[in-house]
Amino acid sequence: MTVPVLSVRDLKVEFVTRRATLRAIDGVSFEIAKGEVLGVVGESGAGKSVTGLAVIGLIDPPGRISGGEILLSGMRIDHLPPEEIRRVRGKRIGMIFQDPLTSLNPLYRIGDQIVETIRTHTNLLESAARKRAVDLLAEVGIPAPDKRVDGYPHEFSGGMRQRVVIALAICAEPELIIADEPTTALDVSVQAQIIALIKRLGRDHGTAVMLVTHDMGVIAETCDRVAVMYSGRIAEIGPVQDVIRNPLHPYAKGLMGAIPTLAGEDKRLVQIPGSMPRLSAIPPGCPFNPRCAFAFDRCRVERPEPIRQGAQAVACHLYDHAAKESAA
């Protein structure tokens, strides 16, 4: 078996505050293979973005990685000294943030920002880096790139700026791209273009992509596999078609039931009662148990570990047949 591009094992991230230590990520494990797109979905505060930031080493104090390991193509990167993780950022892992309007420095020409990034990570000379910047802009679909390279960020539309951000993220040919809600701030019509672009780039360069979003439509369209996060844990992970057609975890079921369909009759969408617990008040056992219609005694005491179900893995006691049988 080949080494996955990204391998996260039992990752824990804590935020130390004056009152208490909050655990934002509690034992998350997943892998992304070369050329694979992993979608990460969940409600706001489920830990999707924090997972992405932890991988690229941008968790700022008072936050810290308190456990587990992160391996990039087999190399452990979670405890690298700041200068070494900096060399990994931008070169081996590219990141795309949510808001393209604020991701670019308004005072510098976009070409200069790309050239700066290229020259930080390679030995290219100014002129060669500039040529590469123009090529990159062409690759991400910016018209007349040789002219636009001298433009300032405010001269670009939101969608075009997100293309520039993507060009910046891929300029050193990274192995992994982390896209943190790359389409949330964009018009619906532009969203599809950006998603298609990320997908194409991933395919052309064999780049692994971690796509953080709360848009199930984007997931269905783009991803190979999907991880459903809830309260800092992965509730369910598996191939995207399986998880969407046949969700196993009660939370994933609720999530899929909440997607409106065009063909749908006038049925009310399924609603998950309650809301996700605050980080300071995560219930013992399964964090979903207060909202779960199928919860039983064990769910309130014991934390479920991922259980394989075909190609999927689900962290839910309902699927622990071995335990059920032995109990019966």
Binding site: R89, G90, K91, T102, N105
Partner: peptide, 11 residues
Amino acid sequence: DYIRFARARGL
């Protein structure tokens, strides 16, 4: 955000 993005670019 652009400072965070600059850090993510590895500058």
